[in-house]
Design a protein around this nucleic acid. Sequence first.
DNA 1: TTTAGCACTCGATTGTTTGGAGTGCTAATT
DNA 2: AATTAGCACTCCAAACAATCGAGTGCTAAA
Lengths: 350, 350
Amino acid sequence: MLPPRRQKILAAIVEQYIETGEPVGSKALLANAGLDVSSATIRNEMAELTALGFITQPHTSAGRVPTEYGYRYYVDNLMQPKELEENERRRIEAGVDYRSGDPEILLETAGEALVNLTNFAAISKAPSDENAFIRNIEMVPISPKKAMVVLLTSTGILKSKPCRTDVEIDADLRKTFIDVVDQNFLGKPLSSVGTVMIQTLAASLGAKALSMSPLLVTIADLVEAASVSEVNLAGQSNLLGYKEYDDNAGQLLDFLHREEPLNMLVSSGDTDSDIEIRIGSENRYKELENSSMIISKYKIGENATGAIGIIGPTRMNYSKLVPSIKYLSEIISKVLSDVYEEETSSGEEG
Amino acid sequence: MLPPRRQKILAAIVEQYIETGEPVGSKALLANAGLDVSSATIRNEMAELTALGFITQPHTSAGRVPTEYGYRYYVDNLMQPKELEENERRRIEAGVDYRSGDPEILLETAGEALVNLTNFAAISKAPSDENAFIRNIEMVPISPKKAMVVLLTSTGILKSKPCRTDVEIDADLRKTFIDVVDQNFLGKPLSSVGTVMIQTLAASLGAKALSMSPLLVTIADLVEAASVSEVNLAGQSNLLGYKEYDDNAGQLLDFLHREEPLNMLVSSGDTDSDIEIRIGSENRYKELENSSMIISKYKIGENATGAIGIIGPTRMNYSKLVPSIKYLSEIISKVLSDVYEEETSSGEEG
DNA sequence: TTTAGCACTCGATTGTTTGGAGTGCTAATT
DNA sequence: AATTAGCACTCCAAACAATCGAGTGCTAAA
């Protein structure tokens, strides 16, 4: 544990650097932090902090800049999350589209709200639920031999796909479809649907297998599509404004367009803590070595979880951002739970 | 009309500048273009072309760069569209996801194919059809007082939204819903649904108006949402690589994120020509003054049209890009027509 | 009408100088 | 022993100067 004065100095350096973006020197620190010592003393302490790896110098005759380790120590031990200001609370609330109830739209607008609020890029992940089940499957004919198949899951995800059948869609086929869906899909977990299951099912249909087969395949595709929860990104272009990305902005943006790593980013991490801060190389991706993420998990009921957060340069105002993201995450939890959770005994309000 | 030699020189300047990105001087031109005159003659011609406004000099002692007007003349009179190479044709075909049949996915993959092929940003607009009508509306209960309402249009667009009802959803309400939908919505053009129509309809329902009202409002919302056809953008980050955007990349990307102008970009323009090239300020947006667009319209059947194309720096290889985009547009037309058009007498193939 | 020749222009590149912020060390002070 | 004033030193950034060369327009000859 660092001695109190050193802690105070480290915190002051981090905060001042976050604010100004310039390496902070001993004198500037003296003016700013409420310390009753001379600049020489501060210099001595700074030399110590440098030796310990908390701060570093861009070059010999420059001020100090926090290292990743320094940020980490600050975030873990020194930072005091700021109270969320009333007008920011309102900005968040105003930005989120409660009304539609569509989780996609909710997350999209929530992401945009974060973007506007923070001037960073926002990342969000739609709710994924291991226990999600099939709420409904419909077949809507659009021509004699084509139909749109629509899947709705318990988490509110809706997927659809056109399907071309080998035979004409008549009352008979529709009846069969409804029966098959009723008995084999409704209420079943998404994870139970797969190639094997479809084949077994087709085999058991006997004479009707031929006509049903394309429809079954389409259902399987839809379930597959509904199982991978999408990651959304917004405000990437904000990042261009920060000088830490001047060189390799393209590289970063390209990285953020790729699906898999994004998914990893919002999926991994502690399951117990509701907010997670990852600084620089803690993100495990070379492209993010100068970036930090603040990610908060949200819950819908017991099983479904998603995440929302921001990506920006390591030099971000952690103490201010954390409460904002926490609050937004709570809102999402609440709104989505309200719409999609099985209703319990508790009454409902307007 | 420009004298032939001057045309030849202008074309050579444009093409060389497109290739190298450097202002082209009289000597460089001599080496490259197959002209049998001295550099001094070329200089004289270049002076003329400058006076006429086709080319310009960045500064006194630099080579020449095409003006917008120069590009325009080149595109209209001098350019010879290159034959589409076999491997590029294959790249386009390989990039597009035919199979899903979902217009959204098709356009998304088509956009990505364009991005990969051209290294510019791709823009696309989903089919919009003034005569589009409502194919189907379903209500899927998800709890006693909540239901998911799903709308499917004749152009294959699917929208859904949860709806909270004031009374419990019972067989009675479902029956009413089906009847109301059957009689008032199915087969009706999207444009016929609006606030007034909904209110009139509600009034005519008498005692059932109360229970149906939230559902009707939801339907109206869905029709509204299905009416605006979405514009898709891909590969924005590619643009960062071009030095013409070095200063204001952020501004451009921000612009491209906004919905309305994008919509304008792909909507406006000649209705008769199938491909449209807009150079620099012809785009009418200040943010695009250094950008060009090549947009091709595609058709589904008689009424529905959409568009796909690219956005990039004015200095782009028009003669090579035009055929690629044309071809991609044809593919989209064909695939979407195949899936969504009302089947006519012509038979269908696998 | 074309071309060789030439003086001129001006951005890009490279080198030089200077100023100042910040440092670490030493010696004096508390 | 801890703190501080003082000072020599380092090194970046900004300003300034010098040079280079591609490209031009013009003139006069072919």
